[in-house]
Design a protein around this nucleic acid. Structure first.
Lengths: 213, 213
DNA sequence: GATGCCCTTAGTGTATACATAAACCGCGAT
DNA sequence: ATCGCGGTTTATGTATACACTAAGGGCATC
């Protein structure tokens, strides 16, 4: 593995896992010492992070970790709804139906995964990730897929704030199942509607979590 | 101006203006000699270009200029329709109406700009660019604006292929005027519809230009 | 004659030295 | 006491030397 990949992966993890808080200044020398590589790969890593929007170049004086506020979440979901709604509709038109029928069946059994033996919900998130990948592949539009991928980075950051509880995950699984079902049925408008519904519920949940009572 | 900015701007120009054809391998040493800077800023420039999608990392052996084929154009416009349609609708909801009313009036007078005294259509494209900027600002959604900006880079490349004739530009100006009018009227669905129409016509024109008779 | 291995070479990946610019601190003057 | 100027310091920006990897060609062997 290249040193620049290592630096990139490490910094990205640290930002997504909120070990590097928004506003933190990432100085090249400091990070190169912390990560045990020279400045060159660190620079490359910071370039990539800035291109992704996880960091911002702060006028000549290092890069800072991008802030994510509640207003950002609204904007983020506005774009997400647009892109994923379209993607779901396209997947319903172009996708391999058996693939989504199988995912639908698996998602219906998702509640079994949400027992307490897996606190990180690893299997559950992996399954949802497979649905995302299946949609990415089904749409056969690399530009749209790319746009969604760059969005998901920010969404993972938001998810870390949301503290999903078992109840919400059960509901989300059912919503994902509905999306998969609509795609498997080859119904674009239904797939888009199911996606819209899911995203609205997700957003409401995140905002409810962070609204003072 | 920093050397890396210079290298980035030069390479970007060369790619967009088709002086560097798709598939061209951009070797670091070669480009650093051509541009008169050292390898480091060239690397930085190539990083940025790759992040934008204008170049692709070719497995350790330099980066190559990304290809743009007719299938890519379909994908590109599919995403463009999604993003710009949503953007026009949001602008109609949130924009300052007088701004778009003024742009509407200017676009109606656009045919006057399309005389032969300005073969590059500089004023015309500047006006259309101002409409794009006004929409970007009106939507107040930095993520959506960012997604559209990264799309426009590829669209400029396509436009260079299209060889817009005066007739098409007249029609396009009228379509843009319709978009501005709908936004000025605060009608989101109309704005989206006008955008959809404009993009379909643009796409048809590009494809007609490149379809063998 | 064809195939496989080795050597050469060219190009990227990394480290580091040097240049340069901006910010901060301290000192002085008003 | 505050404002401004200048020096110092610390960061990034650039250049370059070195390492390493992969690809291509040539030679030898089957």
């Amino acid at each position: 593995m290249r040193a620049s990949d290592k630096a990139y992966a490490a910094l990205r993890e640290d930002i997504i896992e909120w070990r590097l808080a928004p506003g933190t200044v990432l100085a090249e020398v400091e990070q190169s010492e912390r990560l045990g590589v020279s400045r060159t790969p660190v620079r490359e890593a910071l370039s990539r992070l800035t291109a992704e929007g996880l960091t911002t170049a702060a006028g000549g004086r290092g890069v800072v970790v991008t802030d994510i506020s509640l207003e950002d979440i609204d904007e983020l979901f506005e774009l997400r709804e647009t892109l994923e709604g379209k993607a779901a509709a396209l997947a319903a038109e172009r996708g391999e139906r058996p693939v989504f029928a199988r995912l639908h069946a698996e998602l219906l059994r998702a509640p079994e995964m949400l027992n307490d033996s897996d606190p990180a919900r690893h299997d559950y998130y992996a399954l949802v990730g497979r649905l995302d990948e299946a949609i990415d592949e089904a749409i056969s539009n690399s530009y749209l897929a790319q746009a969604m991928r760059s969005l998901r980075v920010h969404l993972v950051r938001v998810r870390r704030l949301a503290a999903d509880d078992a109840e919400r995950l059960h509901a989300a699984a059912a919503e994902h199942a509905a999306i998969a079902e609509a795609i498997a049925a080859g119904n674009p408008r239904l797939a888009e509607a199911a996606t819209t519904l899911h995203l609205h519920r997700s957003l409401s949940h995140v905002k409810a979590t962070h609204t003072p009572h």
